[in-house]
Amino acid sequence: MNLQISLLALVQLVLYALLAPLVAGWIHWVKAKLQNRCGARIFQPYRDLYKLFNKEARMAHTASQLFRASPYIVFTATLLAASAVPLLSINLPTAAIADIIAIAGLLALSRFFLALAGMDVGTAFGGMGASREMLVSALAEPAMLVAVFTLAMTAHTTNLASLVGFQLTETFVLRPSFMFALAALVLVAIAETGRIPVDNPSTHLELTMIHEAMILEYSGRHLALMEWAAQLKLLLYGTLLTNVFFPWGIAQDLSLTSLAIGLLSLIAKLLLLGIILAISETVLAKMRLFRTPAFLNLALLLGLLGMLSHVILEIGV
């Protein structure tokens, strides 16, 4: 039994790493279709990664060893964070490594090194990207925390496996607080994963870049790891949102059928999420950097309203 669970945890970890480029590819594909382009094939991100891993990695003369170590740290920290988010099954031993606050901490660690790596070469772009990234993430943090508080006040846990378990066992009730928390977390996720309208992952226009500006100097396998980590982060947030708020279908035992159902429902949910994201990215335009605080203030406000409606409407002792 124990061995099985550990094996399952390993499978989920590998699945995370493997699925991440696919999700990115899917979003690209849907976006291309929506914009009347033929677009690249869904599996293109895998080829890109393969190509990058085989290319020579280069480093600027001015870069230090930190520049070299950062991709490994960024990727591992993101993967570790992902390992604590239930993907197929709520029997996840690795979920105990990090509760949601520790997951946020791990993502912050990867962001820390990403920003430092951006500043390491000493070009203007790297510093600019790092400065902006730290601003966006700092403003996203309180919104995320208040939303997490709302969930934790109801479910009395911040362990994601227990949280999803709570959602599954509870009889169906309408919770205004969860709706607000979901909305807040969606906005936070958009900001944190650098999607439109906060950042545009496909631009290389100097003045609008955030994430791309930081990894501008990377090449070869270093760049591959950085890109992969970004895709992983997107998948992580997607799974977090879908599995916490719409946990239906996730496996509760270890039988093969329930795992298969878990996988199928996961894929269905991710496909749907990808479509929604692609539509929203097609109809929205990127905001100016200094509009982002208003965007994240809205997230914070939604989080606060969720927390207040929980306190006032749902408990009300």
């Binding site: 912050a108 820390f112 390491d120 790092a130 700092a138 943090e141 309180p142 006040m153």
Partner: peptide
């Protein structure tokens, strides 16, 4: 119950800004 999360949100903001501050220092 409704005030404490606000304090915690301020703590979260502080933590993230501290990270920004020390990225600046080290960078």
């Amino acid at each position: 119950r409704s005030l404490l999360p606000i304090a915690a949100a301020m703590l979260a903001l502080t933590g993230a800004l501290a990270a920004a501050c020390f990225v600046k220092v080290y960078g």
